[in-house]
Each structure stands twice: as structure tokens, then as C-alpha cells.
Design a protein around this nucleic acid. Structure first.
Length: 1061
RNA sequence: GCGGGAAUGGCGGAAUUGGUAGACGCGCUGGUCUCAAACACCAGUGAUUUCACGAUCGUGCGGGUUCAACUCCCGCUUCCCGCACCA
């Protein structure tokens, strides 16, 4: 209905179709890719006459390694959906671009001096080639790159908007900083409820008005949504950069695994905490995988509780009126607080420690500070801590409780201090047990407190003065009310989420559009955007330790120094989905018209590894952009799907150690000699022993030593030894054995001759050819496990775990190697599932798959592997099934002589049923992303039509249309063979007709007591009574009734009959 | 420890609101074609048992609900992913 395209498009007609019995993807595919390009078939316009559908892939970082078969999985799925939606009449936006700023290109620049832009360009070209090869329907005219100044101009512009706004808690949205200034002038910040730094002082209008310009700017930084500030950061010396929390895994950098240390640095930050609650509640409005939402909830870490101020007991070293604030989610347990614990880093530790305890406390603080993150995490079970000598007062009962320090309390969370309730909290309980501190029960429902803490909220409170006898629900509000009344605390919500560090001490990123004057940052003029990355001589920090931009000549704005750090990787990816809507606009990040039409992403697809990085930061930026009216929705993606990882299937070959040869000699060769020379003796079970021989015999003075030709020193020692003992010595080189491994008779001959000879020393004269031996995997179970070294072998020279020997011999690792083959004359490898990576030699390149089987086959095979969301191993073996299907489908269009066989005849009922069954199933399955079963349905339909010998256009044409999203090239070819001149992309998706699916009869299964005992053919519209009669009339059913009358007969129309006896 | 997901033939995986478990494909076995091989095509292929008809068992384990359970409920086991001393 929306197919207006063919009315105004003139298609190039120089393309001829290939009418041949044989399906040849290598001829068809490049041809149509060119045709699509020449006719701009995938060009997308903003047009109001069609409903829009925006389907987006998470854009890739173009790495030097290129794409492997795991990458396109999501792209293929999204391409199928995009093409399907287009056939359904939607105007589909399905763009692709590159997240092209990033560390690897810069690391490479440091090593080689090549500008990262050059490397990036090369990598992008390679990606583009690989992507084009697969036949995606991307509108390449919308391609974008985050490192393009035309793009990052707007990244910088959004940064400026963040700088110019603060978060107003009353309006619950971002407001201009200018309105904040107006309020300060009028009434100071007393009435202002806004997200700001914790240490923001209260000021009066007078204070504000007396401030110098510099002081005002510094004060405003406490409110701006992006601001520079001293913060502990994850500093990675090896990478020379600050890393965000999600770039650090287990105390080392995610990329490269370098150590990371905490360092105080002046950094730009993003006040994401202002949005904590909205980022949390927004999750309930979007259709995203539950695991992603949970990870984000966890990362935001909202806890509702109370802040309580504990005064210090008399006699404690501290200024008058000092209190220690703690945060607790269990204020109801406060009467059970028998001690307090501070983090060793807590600022009051040094103040309050008593003189007697000072030495111990200092020692502990030093010890704790010296421990690495890894040590801390490894020893979470170990209880450590010291008493400070100081006491605090519980505000509720005025009891003195000792203050301890311990590193189970984290400086970075809450206030860095906890009230310890050993009866209710397991960590506090362990601490109390260890240091023999009192444990006071606080609820009548608590049990077994001598075994463990019991955090129950059941029961009634005891030992809790104010709340004795109350339930949890009653106690909490009562206590908070009391706290606020007595001004010693308040109800409080705490978030684990920290403000995000935004600076990177790096070159290859967006320059921050700010300059410094008098220690205060200012934004550059908007007209100066983009602030383009300057040229520098080297991509390293300056001698004084400043970021690489410090090397740029004249890197100044009107005489003032620019900010030297650049933005992190996530800056450019936090808003790119809008740029695709209007990619070349130089006046705005995206026009109102484009935004008004495309709105937001309908369907976002990508890997789950971005759960809390990209997906949280981009939601944050989007909420902000929504607040200030830039974008129409608070959430940018309605629906999100994670494609599962494709695991690599690694292959291993087994290289023989000396120990193998000794065993081999024994098992395969020496046993026949026993009769004549008596059983041989193997030296002491340890084959590797240096001073005894590998083999000696009862009735022969010959001894045998197996060793590498390279171990001359060992051979000399053995020679001396045998001469001394009067033994005759046969030295067998492992290399010689390797040479003749597949012809053991030769070795047996050699030994036989040695046995009969009288020579004292026998060393084979032929120089061995082999240096090492590899043993077929199916043979290694006959040997001790330690006889081999397993080595990764390139999976591209292995087929069905059988090594292709001709190809293998060309590899350096198999130079001068011999192979011990199995009984079938083959060499097999073992396999294991691992992550796909270069170092494991298990990377499969999509280009190779396309070259061998065609892009359509590759696309369908990736889908056929299983559900898109599941992790699955890559195994090329099954691809022949899909390839066979495409050949068969192609074959439906031709007769045995290769002539076009498509007829205009009317289809019969069987043919219509096969077609409409397929339409129904494929449509249903596409709607629920079941691409794997779609492929099955195509196979079933094709098999049926082949049996029916059907070549009717009215049946084949709808199938071609349905196949188009999956195998666009073959579909386009067949579409044109059927006589069309436009693209199959502009056809209409067929709909099924239930009438054709009905059949006159149905084979009903008959169960007796739920077990299948027979079937009966019945009319489709059979009544329950008739069905029952027919079922009971069958002999094989009567047999099971044993003459008894059925108790009950259940008849499910169209399903089954069950007889209960 | 917490959260999320999963477990079905030799393998990847199907199975609608509970209704013929194993669709489809790979692999394997047998056959046709061929001098032969490859390709192609046809047939078979969960296990045990039976000459055969058939029977018994069978969706990680143990219970339960139901005429009927891969599917629902209760209790476990194992694996994968994420988080982890979060007060």
C-alpha cells in the first residue's frame, strides 16, 4: 500500500538475470550489490506519508583485527528486521557508523608514530568492505564517525549545554545556570534545592554579591552538570590514562590488564548522580532485557534509609560539637548498635584516636592503605580492625559505644562510617565475635544469635526503648520522626552511583571546548565549534606529565590555555542515534523536522557488555537533552535486545614429548621382542631419568635410550655409563622415531638388528628429517596424559576436527614436523569452546564464509544457529544444510535442462497450504525475533513444493518476497527472473489465508490415561461424540481398556482424544 | 554471598494458552547413480527390548498438581553471565 517507490524510480536496466539450473552466488551477489548501490535502493528519506521504524545496531569500534563471524550476528538480525518492516510498509531507518575515537589507535600511534586518524581510516575501510560483502541494507549516505569534526562539533556543543545547566530538585529537571545566578542574587542558595557538591556552603544574597567574578565561577562549579574537580580516579600508568569504573575489572584495566591505582587528580566530571533516581525509574518504562535493567539498578544502587549523627563521648579528642554521621538502611536496629566502625581513611580517625591507641591505629591505617584492591577482595573473609580509644554516644539511649576502624567499611560509600549492629548484620556479627564485643538482640523473632546474625524484619522489637513492641513498619517512621525532631538525623536516600569522571589524559578523543583563566574554566564561544584536535609531534604525555595536547603548539584560546584532557569514549556514543536522523546538518545536531519524524529508536540491538557503560551514560545524556527540550523522549530506545556471543571453537594439535616416544616404543614395537629377549624393564617409572636407561632386557645386554638428537650432553653421559657397566647401547633419536612413526616395522628392524649385533654403541646414521611429531587426537588416550603438549592450531585449516595436512605443512609451526595418523589415515584435532580471538587461532572471517558459500547462505546460517539472544558456539559444519536449501529453492524455478519452469497455472490446495503455512509461521516468528525457526519454515516449504513438483508463480513469488530479508541477493535475482523490474525490497509482505490451512481431515492421537495408544483419521469438524465413538471403536484402544467402560473421555478439538479408565 | 539466564538425541536446536517430545539442519547407517570417488537423490536414525506386531523408559535431579507436564507449583544440582564487605 505504501509502494510509491516504483512510480518515480527509474531502475538501471543493464543487469541481466542468470537463468541456469545451477545456483551461483558468486555471480549473483556482487551484481545485485552494485545494482542496489547504483539505484540507491537503501537510501532513506524523511517522509511523512509512511510510518517510521528506526532500527539501530550499536556501532562498532573499528579495530585493526577486522570483523569476525561473531560481529555480524546482530547486524544480520537487525537487517532482516529492517527489510521485513520495509516490506510491511514502514519507512525504515537502519544506519551504520563508527565509534572511531579510542585507545587502540592511539596505542598504535605511540608505537609507530602513525596518526590515529590514518589507522582509523584504514580500519574503517576494512570494516566497510566486510560489511558491504554481507549485503546489508544500510543507508551509507548516513554513515557517521565520532572522530569526524562535523560530528564531534555537536558532542562538544552538548558538553557546553551540560556546563550551562544545573539540576533543580524541585523542578526535577535541568535548568539554565543563568536562572540559578538570578536566584543567588535575590536570595542566596538557602531556598535552592539542587544537585550540588556535598561541601557547598550556605550563602546569602549578600555573600553572593560580594564575591569576585572568579569566586562566583568557582561557586557555580558546585552546581554545573559538568565540572572540573579533584577526585580520586583510576589511574593506569601503563596506559597513561584515567579509566572509568566500568573500564576497570578486578583491579586491573579491562583493556590490557595493566595495574590501576587510585590517584587524586583534577578532572572533569559529569554530575550523573543528579539523574540517579530518574535513571532508575525510567527503567520501568522501557522494554529492555531484565538482566540489563538489573545491572543498571545495581550500578545506581539506591538505598533508602536514614542518616544519624552520633556525638562523641566526653573525653574524646575532638573539637567541641564534632559528630560522626552514619548512614543506615536499618534504622530500626539502632538500639542494637554496640559499637561503631570507621573506614581507615575516615577523616576523623586521626582526630579522635586516643594516645594509648595512636600507635596501633596509625599502624593499621598504613597497613590498610598499602593493600591493593586485589588483596582486599581476596581476603574479604578475614576480620581485621583496631580500637581507636574513642567513644560515641548513641543518640537514642545515650549509651557510650566504642569506635573502631576496620577496612570492611568502605571510605567511598555513605559517610565512611557505620553503626555496627552485630545481632542484625553478619559482617558486624563477625567483627563482634572476633573482638569480643557485645551482641544485643533487638527483635523477638531473632534466632540463633550465637551462630550468626539474624537480619529479620519479622517480630516485635525488644531492648529498644522507643520502639519496644512495634513492628518494622511502625518502627521506621517513628524513629525517623524522632531523629528529625531532635535534629540528630533524617531520612535519607543514598546512591552507590558516583559522578562520572569525564577527562582522559589522551590525544585521540574530542577536545573539551573550554579554556582556563585564573584557575577557572570557561567555555569557548559557540561560534568557534568545532574545536578541532591539533597536530602534535608525539602521542605521549609531556615531560611535565601533562596530557598529549600539552605538546600542541599555540594551543590557546585568546591567550588562555585550553583544557588539555579529551573526552572519554562514551561521549560520542551517548547521542549518536540522533545524528543518523540528520547526519549532515551543520546548523544543529539534528533538525526539528528529522526529530519530529524519527522520534526515537524503535529497536536497538547490541552486546550486553555495554549494560552499564554506554547504555547508562547515553540514557543520562538523553534525559538531560529531553529536559532542555532538545529531544522528544526521556528514553531514546523503546526496545533493546542483546545478541548472544558467538564463541570460538578452538582446535588443538598434540605435540609429542620424549615420554610419548618411550611409551610408543614399548607398546608398538618392543612387546614382540619379549618372547626372545625376555620382558624389558623400564627405568623406575620415570621415563625422563638421566642416569638409567629407558629400556633394558632380561636376556640381552642391549639397553635402549630414547632421546632428542639435540640432547648431546645426555647422550654422552649415557654412553659413559653403559661403557662402565658393560652394556651395549642403542640410542634412538625421537626425531628418527618421528620420521618413521607411520612405519613401525622399520624401527622394529633396527632394534632387531641391534639385538643381534655385537657392536657396543649403535646410533642410527641417517640424519632425521623431522624435528617434532604431532599425534592424532584419537590416539592420545593410549598414552599418559603428560606425554603431549596441546597447541592451538588455526581452525581455518581444520575441517570437522580433521587437519588438512597439505595446508598444515605450509605453516611455520609444522615445518619439519611429522604426523602420526590414525587408522583411517587421518589426523584429528581436539576442540574446545573459547572466546574468539586472534591468539587462539579460532577466528573465522565472514569474508571467507561469503567467498565459499555466498552472503545469503552465510546470513541464513548465522540465523539458523539458534535464537539470537543465546550464546552459541560457531561451528561451520552445519552450513551445508543452508547451502543445500538455497540450491533447492533455486531449483524450483528451473527444469532439468536449465530452462525457466515457472508457470502461471492456478495452485492446488496442497501447494496453497504449504505456502500459507509458511507465510503464517514466518510472519509470527519474525514478530518475536525467531529468525532461526523462520529458516526452518523456508526449508519445510521448499521440501514440500519439491515433492509437489510445484513451479507456479503465484506460489513462488510470495516465497521470494519472504526470503528477501534473509537472502536479499538470491531473492532479488529470482524476483527479476519472475519478470519484475523494481527491487524486491519494494514488494509487499504477503499475508496468509486461514482458509487454505484447513484440511478436511485430521489425524487425531488417542491417549489412554495420558499415554499415546493409537491414532485415527477424523473429519476436521468432528463432534466430540463422533470422535469418542471412533476412538473407542479401534481394536488397539479396546485392548487397553481391558473390557472396562471408560470413566471419562476428553476431546480437545483439533488436538487429541484422551480416554480415562 | 546477591541478581539474571540456562539445562531436551552424537551435535546446533524445535515444540502456540499444559494436549502426538525431538520439527528443521548437521552427523551417522543403508541404498540408487558411477569403473571409482565426489555431487545428487531415496530410506532410516532418542534409549532398551523384540524375528516381528509391539512394549518399557525418556526433556538436569527429587517430590507435587492434572485426564494430560519440557511447559505449572515446591525442594535441590550443575553450568554461563553480571555484581560483590554497599551499611
Amino acid at each position: 500500500m505504501f509502494n510509491t517507490r516504483n512510480s518515480f524510480t527509474i531502475y538501471h536496466s543493464s543487469f541481466t538475470t542468470i537463468k541456469s539450473l545451477e545456483y551461483r552466488p558468486s555471480e549473483i551477489e556482487p551484481k545485485w550489490r552494485r545494482w542496489w548501490q547504483e539505484n540507491q535502493v537503501y537510501k532513506v528519506e524523511t517522509r511523512a506519508d509512511k510510518p517510521k521504524y528506526y532500527i539501530l545496531d550499536m556501532f562498532p569500534y573499528p579495530s585493526g583485527a577486522g570483523l569476525h563471524v561473531g560481529h555480524p550476528l546482530g547486524y544480520i538480525a537487525s537487517d532482516i528486521m529492517a527489510r521485513y518492516k520495509r516490506l510491511c510498509g514502514f519507512n525504515v531507518l537502519h544506519p551504520m557508523g563508527y565509534d572511531s575515537f579510542g585507545l587502540p589507535a592511539e596505542q598504535y600511534a605511540i608505537q609507530t608514530g602513525t596518526h590515529p586518524a590514518v589507522t582509523t581510516e584504514q580500519n574503517i575501510n576494512r570494516y566497510r568492505e566486510q560489511l558491504e560483502n554481507i549485503g546489508f541494507s544500510f543507508d551509507w549516505s548516513r554513515e557517521l564517525r565520532t572522530s569526524d569534526p562535523g560530528y564531534y562539533k555537536w558532542t562538544q556543543w552538548i558538553f557546553m549545554q551540560l556546563f550551562n545547566h544545573y539540576y533543580d530538585l524541585e523542578a526535577d529537571k535541568a535548568l539554565p545556570i543563568s536562572s540559578l545566578v538570578a536566584r543567588f542574587e535575590k536570595s542566596g542558595n538557602v531556598g535552592v534545592k539542587a544537585a550540588c557538591d556535598d561541601d557547598t556552603p550556605v550563602i546569602s544574597p549578600g555573600d553572593w554579591n560580594q564575591m569576585t567574578e572568579r569566586e562566583r565561577q568557582l561557586f557555580l562549579l558546585k552546581y554545573r552538570l559538568t565540572y572540573p574537580g579533584e577526585a580520586f580516579v583510576n589511574w593506569c600508568p601503563a596506559l597513561g590514562s584515567v579509566l572509568s569504573n566500568d573500564e576497570v575489572k578486578e583491579g586491573v584495566s579491562e583493556r590490557g590488564g595493566h595495574p590501576v591505582e587510585r590517584k587524586l587528580m583534577n578532572q572533569w566530571n559529569m554530575r550523573i548522580t543528579a539523574y540517579a533516581n530518574r535513571l532508575l525509574s525510567g527503567l520501568d518504562t522501557i522494554d529492555w532485557p531484565e538482566s540489563i535493567k538489573d545491572q543498571q539498578r545495581n550500578w545506581i544502587g539506591k538505598s533508602v534509609g536514614a542518616a544519624v549523627k552520633f556525638a562523641l563521648a566526653e573525653g574524646t579528642n575532638s573539637p567541641e560539637g564534632t559528630t560522626i554521621e552514619v548512614f543506615t538502611t536499618r534504622i530500626d536496629t539502632i538500639y542494637g548498635a554496640t559499637f561503631m566502625v570507621l573506614a581507615p581513611e575516615h577523616e576523623l580517625v586521626n582526630v579522635i584516636k586516643s594516645e594509648e591507641q595512636a600507635a596501633e591505629v596509625d599502624g593499621y591505617v598504613r597497613w590498610a592503605a598499602a593493600r591493593s584492591e586485589i588483596e582486599r577482595m581476596a581476603e574479604t573473609k578475614k576480620v581485621t580492625g583496631k580500637f581507636t580509644g574513642a567513644y560515641a554516644i548513641n543518640p537514642f539511649n545515650q549509651e557510650r559505644i566504642p569506635i573502631w576502624i576496620a577496612d570492611y567499611v568502605l571510605a567511598g560509600y555513605g559517610t565512611g562510617a557505620v553503626m555496627a549492629v552485630p545481632s542484625g548484620d553478619q559482617r558486624d556479627w563477625q567483627f563482634a565475635k572476633h573482638f569480643d564485643l557485645p551482641i544485643v538482640p533487638i527483635s523477638d523473632a531473632q534466632k540463633d544469635l550465637d551462630q550468626a546474625a539474624d537480619p529479620t524484619k519479622e517480630g516485635r522489637y525488644i531492648n529498644s526503648r522507643l520502639i519496644n513492641g512495634m513492628s518494622y513498619e511502625e518502627a521506621v517512621p517513628a524513629l525517623i520522626k524522632w531523629l528529625e525532631l531532635h535534629n540528630v538525623g533524617k531520612g535519607k536516600t543514598q546512591y552507590k552511583l558516583r559522578n562520572a569522571v569525564f577527562s582522559r589524559q589522551r590525544y585521540w578523543g574530542e577536545p573539551v571546548p573550554a579554556y582556563w583563566k585564573d584557575g577557572v574554566p570557561y567555555l569557548i564561544d559557540e561560534k568557534e565549534l568545532p574545536l578541532v584536535l591539533p597536530k602534535i609531534d608525539k602521542y605521549l604525555p609531556t615531560e611535565s606529565g601533562e596530557p598529549p595536547l600539552g605538546r600542541a603548539e599555540n594551543w590557546k584560546y585568546k591567550g588562555s590555555e585550553y583544557e588539555l584532557s579529551t573526552m572519554p569514549g562514551w561521549a560520542g556514543s551517548s547521542w549518536y542515534f540522533y545524528r543518523y536522523m540528520d547526519p549532515n546538518n551543520s546548523n544543529t545536531f539534528c533538525s526539528k523536522e528529522a526529530l519530529g519524524y524519527w522520534q526515537d529508536v524503535d529497536f536497538y540491538i547490541g552486546g550486553s557488555e555495554h549494560a552499564v557503560g554506554h547504555l547508562l551514560y547515553s540514557r543520562f545524556w538523553n534525559q538531560f537533552m529531553f529536559d532542555i527540550g532538545l529531544v522528544p523522549h526521556a528514553e531514546f530506545a523503546k526496545k533493546l535486545v542483546n545478541q548472544g556471543m558467538i564463541g570460538g571453537r578452538s582446535n588443538f594439535v598434540f605435540r609429542a614429548k620424549e615420554r610419548f616416544f618411550e611409551q610408543f616404543l614399548q607398546k608398538a614395537i618392543l612387546i614382540p621382542f619379549f618372547k626372545e629377549f625376555g620382558p624389558n624393564v623400564i627405568s623406575s617409572g620415570n621415563y625422563e631419568e638421566d642416569y638409567t636407561y629407558d629400556f633394558t632386557f632380561d636376556k640381552s645386554d642391549l639397553v635402549i635410550e630414547v632421546t632428542s638428537i639435540e640432547r648431546q650432553e645426555k647422550i654422552e653421559r649415557i654412553k659413559e655409563n653403559s661403557a662402565k657397566e658393560g652394556k651395549r647401547l642403542l640410542v634412538l633419536f625421537t626425531e628418527t622415531l618421528a620420521d618413521h612413526i607411520n612405519e613401525p616395522n622399520k624401527i622394529a628392524d633396527l632394534i632387531a638388528r641391534a639385538m643381534e649385533s655385537l657392536e657396543e654403541l649403535i646410533v642410527p646414521v641417517d640424519k632425521p628429517v623431522s624435528r617434532q611429531l604431532f599425534v592424532s587426537h584419537d590416539l592420545i588416550c593410549d598414552y599418559i596424559a603428560d606425554s603431549f603438549t596441546a597447541l592451538h592450531v588455526d581452525v581455518n585449516i581444520v575441517e570437522a576436527d580433521v587437519l588438512k595436512l597439505e595446508n598444515a605443512r605450509e605453516l611455520p609451526m609444522f615445518e619439519k614436523a611429522n604426523f602420526k595418523l590414525n587408522n583411517d589415515g587421518k589426523f584429528t584435532c581436539s576442540h574446545e569452546l573459547e572466546k574468539m580471538s586472534k591468539s587462539k587461532f579460532n577466528v573465522v572471517n565472514p569474508d571467507d564464509m561469503v567467498a565459499e558459500h555466498g552472503a545469503d547462505c552465510f546470513r541464513m546460517f548465522e540465523m539458523f544457529l539458534g535464537p539470537i539472544t543465546d550464546a552459541k558456539p560457531w561451528n561451520t559444519q552445519g552450513i551445508s544444510g543452508v547451502s543445500g536449501f538455497l540450491k533447492k529453492f533455486w531449483g524450483l524455478f528451473f527444469d532439468k535442462n536449465g530452462n525457466l519452469a515457472v508457470s502461471k497455472d492456478e495452485p492446488n490446495a496442497d501447494e496453497l497450504r504449504a505456502l500459507h503455512q509458511c507465510i503464517k509461521k514466518v510472519t509470527e516468528d519474525l514478530e518475536r525475533m525467531g529468525m532461526n525457526t523462520c529458516v526452518s519454515h523456508f526449508m519445510i516449504a521448499t521440501n514440500e513444493l519439491r515433492k509437489l513438483n510445484c513451479s507456479k508463480q503465484s506460489v513462488l513469488e510470495p516465497l521470494v518476497i519472504m526470503l528477501a530479508p534473509f537472502g536479499p541477493h538470491i531473492a532479488e535475482e529470482l524476483w527479476h527472473i519472475l519478470g519484475h523490474e523494481n527491487s524486491v525490497c519494494d514488494a509487499s509482505w504477503p499475508s496468509h489465508n486461514e482458509e487454505y490451512l484447513k484440511s478436511d481431515t485430521k489425524e487425531y492421537p488417542i491417549q489412554v490415561n495420558g499415554k499415546l495408544r493409537g491414532t485415527v483419521e477424523l473429519p476436521s469438524d468432528v463432534t466430540a461424540a463422533d470422535a469418542e465413538a471412533a476412538a473407542l471403536g479401534l481394536d488397539q484402544i479396546q485392548k487397553w481398556l481391558e473390557g472396562k467402560a471408560p470413566k471419562k473421555v476428553i476431546f480437545v478439538p483439533g488436538r487429541m482424544i484422551n480416554i480415562v479408565v
